[in-house]
Design a protein around this nucleic acid. Structure first.
Lengths: 339, 339
DNA sequence: CGCTCGAACGTTAGCGCTAACGGCCCTTTC
DNA sequence: GAAAGGGCCGTTAGCGCTAACGTTCGAGCG
């Protein structure tokens, strides 16, 4: 244990104590072969006696294996991004990686340089959780600068790019929204309205596709912001309309906003109005009434994103996805229309 | 702009281009005085022409000013910790700091070395968001190793330590819970029950103190986990008891769990049962019915934590707190008891 | 007019680590 | 029994930056 203030113990201190060269110590801490067992044991003993811990900056500088990722996101507090981040952290911790966070303000415009200088060094690996325009732009900038070391999650409009398979880790948001919409249609609703969050274009596509399939013209989607309050406001007119019997929401938070607005408008759930969310956030199952939604494994996606990045860095094959597949959870905010 | 794959531009490349020494470039990027305006301009031009961006690892290694913080937390997805993290990130970004995340698993036991080796280098600064035993332990380990560079938020049992003022950034959780309990008492409830989350001992203290003030013996607090589900389960017996008319919850998530359990038990809110949360999470205002709770400015606390750390690193005075003071928000889950 | 002094730079020496290479010694092989 | 081959370890040279000290040169002074 190095005393506070004193110069931290370095690889040379360990080397002297163990009676070997500093390079041998380096070999031991990097699990390199070519070290005799006896020597290895001696070095490890010296390491723990002195409380030596490698300096990550020095390792990075000296050009060893990469051991950090920078995660770009626009909000660490939203359920989806928070869980994705958590998944990334899980994977990173298991691999001995350090995770750096860089939060991008959606209302700000960043230059290429603004984005790139947030990396710990030129060409450092990054994961972008892209759900809005700002993060999508950041993703493009980063990928241009370092195609081999940047992956992304999310489902913005640009995920349709041809090479997306190479760097995108994502659930099939289109299919997910399509399934939920079909479910509502199957309950007998004439049509389904859509409350859209910023970005996430593919969910909206899925909703539109499901309607097109049965020959129903899609009503104009209603645009909401990311907050519950903005959803309640955006949905006010929708819930006031007695002809509206089913609303599909971009995510659970928006659905809670709709539920709130519906309550204020005096409409009963699910009798007058069916509401379906997306994400299965922690509250969905415990809301009163419990929210019908789709379980999305964001944490798994985050882990998958890290693993893809890790594989790319080590030149390995793309690993197989490891997340749960989405599942429609029918609870108590949806049902057949009354009339 | 450095081409992908090619060696990134260094301070020497800039120096050559500008016709100065590398040290002059260093002075320019560090805003040091002693550089003629004309030279400074020349160097800045070279920097932008070449797309030079300083290597953070090299700067750290060379012993320049500290430019990163490691944040220790046990869950990045919980509302309180997520918002605190966000506040830290805000402050850090403004000061040009890099934020590293280190998530600690509450179910795991870490050695001193496990914790310390998560820092980017020996003695790197850290902020601990301490709400449970694991993070509290981490806080102690880190502070012992580097008292000058570790601050914490949260309100665990150990925040009563004598020197806490020096490193703790925290809301007065005791007063907050006391105020909420007093409010319930003032509505005519004979007593108030408490649903406790892990850690956060001071909130429980505040509740107990409020009861003691009016000479009511505090009922046994009910212990919950962090999840809404665990709260619903833990509160099942409580809500089934018709003598229980008011429950104070450790945070909003627990309150949602109680609301859910109460609904299942067929008790009406707030007629049969008053429920008060704590945190004012985004959903509280939009829940049906809207949740009575206390607004806590976690983001402000996070910013305050970063600013305290920053001040310590630069040897400045402790800055004044900058967060909103807590406020009781009486909404629709609380009221006078029916009988 | 020589001197001091300070502004404005340059030079040198590390920070702690890894890569690359070199050297020693003990086997193995024909 | 000499050559070839490895296993094991040491030496050297950086990575990109900053700290500390040196140097130059012109202004200001008596």
């Amino acid at each position: 244990m190095s005393a506070a203030g004193a110069r931290p113990v370095s690889i040379f201190d360990v080397a002297k104590r163990a009676g070997v060269s500093h390079q041998t110590v380096s070999r031991v801490i990097n699990d390199a072969p070519q070290v005799a067992d006896a020597t290895r044991a001696k070095v490890k003993a010296a390491i723990s006696e002195l409380g030596y811990r490698p300096n990550r900056s020095a390792r990075t500088l000296a050009g060893g294996a990469v051991r950090s990722v920078t995660v770009f996101t626009f909000d660490t507090a939203l359920y989806g991004t928070a869980e994705t981040l958590r998944g990334i952290e899980d994977g990173a911790a298991a691999a001995g990686f350090t995770v750096l966070i860089s939060v991008l303000d959606p209302d700000q415009t960043y230059t290429d340089d603004d984005i790139l200088s947030r990396l710990s060094h030129d060409g450092a690996p990054a994961i972008v959780i892209a759900h809005d325009d700002t993060t999508t732009r950041a993703r493009r900038i980063l990928r241009e600068a370092r195609p081999g070391a940047v992956v992304a999650t999310g489902d913005d409009k640009l995920s349709r790019e041809p090479d997306a398979a190479d760097w995108l880790v994502s659930l099939d948001d289109r299919a997910v929204a399509e399934r939920a919409t079909r479910y509502l249609l199957s309950m007998g609703h004439r049509t389904v309205h859509y409350l859209a969050m910023p970005g996430r274009a593919r969910r909206q596509d899925g909703w539109a596709d499901a309607l097109a399939e049965v020959g129903v013209e899609a009503p104009e989607p209603v645009q909401s912001g990311w907050t519950i309050g903005s959803a309640a406001e955006a949905a006010a007119a929708l819930v006031a309309d007695p002809d509206v019997t089913a609303i599909m929401c971009g995510n659970d938070d928006l659905a809670f906003g709709v539920l709130h607005a519906a309550h204020r408008a005096g409409r009963s759930i699910p009798g007058d109005l069916s509401v379906v969310g997306c994400d299965d956030s922690p509250l969905a199952a415990f809301n009163v009434p419990p929210l019908t939604t789709i379980d999305l494994d964001f944490r798994g996606v985050g882990r998958g994103a890290f693993e893809l990045l890790h594989a790319k860095l080590e030149g390995r094959e793309r690993p197989r996805p490891v997340w749960r597949s989405p599942e429609l959870l029918v609870r108590e905010t949806s049902g057949p229309p009354r009339h």
